[in-house]
Amino acid sequence: MEEVAAVRRAALAGVDDIEPERLHDRLAARLDDASFAPGVLTLVAEAAARDQAVDDSDADRAAGVQLIYEGLALTRRLAHDDPWTTGDRDAADLDILIADILVSRGFYLLARTGAAEAAVDVVREFGKDQTELRATGNDDLDGNLEADICELAVVAGVTAAGHEPTAALRAVGPDLASDGLPAVDTLLSGEVADRLTGHDSQAAADH
């Protein structure tokens, strides 16, 4: 799948200068095991808004979304597992550093784009959800990350094409993540692009 390969290359490029080698290798391994759905959705949203295919040169925003998701998902896992008390403390220290790097590099890639504010909102809401989860034990809050990151993906893709991410367009992202991250095959089937194009067309008609 060309879109997956493009997101992987851009995401790896985003952390390519990280040293020492051991840390870089752990980052690369994390990305090798990733679902690239957030990044692919970004490219699908951009292509739908442009009404044409996108290529590797458009993948930086997709990589930014992908890196933020990977960092927050790793942070979530560490919060649940608490390896500092039940496992390998040294590995946990390295993992939390990796999570911080992933999120910060994702922010860097989105910093001067129309998705910058939405990226901040994702991290802010993630913090609120995790705080509330610890206080209430409401595990349903964990799924908000996937919904929020898919909304960010739509915003990043649509704004890359120079379009306004309307409320209807933004809502497509969380809907796709109602059961977790959507499958990449689903995102590339054409149905998601049709939904995004239909919402965009309707928004234009309304104005």
Rank of each mutant, 00 (worst) to 15 (best):
A111D: 13
A111P: 03
T113N: 08
A115S: 15
A115D: 05
A116C: 07
A116G: 03
A116Y: 15
E117T: 11
E117Y: 06
E117M: 14
A118D: 09
A118N: 03
A118Y: 01
A119L: 04
V122G: 08
V122A: 06
V122D: 02
V122Q: 04
V123A: 12
V123M: 07
V123Y: 10
R124G: 03
R124A: 15
E125M: 08
E125D: 14
F126L: 02
F126E: 04
Q130I: 15
T131L: 08
T131D: 10
T131K: 10
E132S: 14
E132V: 10
L133M: 11
L133F: 11
R134P: 03
R134T: 08
T136E: 09
T136H: 15
G137T: 06
N138E: 13
D139F: 06
D140T: 11
D140I: 06
D142M: 09
D142K: 06
D142Y: 11
G143A: 15
N144S: 15
E146I: 04
A147I: 04
A147Y: 04
A147P: 02
D148V: 06
I149H: 00
I149V: 14
C150R: 01
E151I: 03
L152Y: 03
V155I: 14
A156M: 00
A156N: 03
G157A: 02
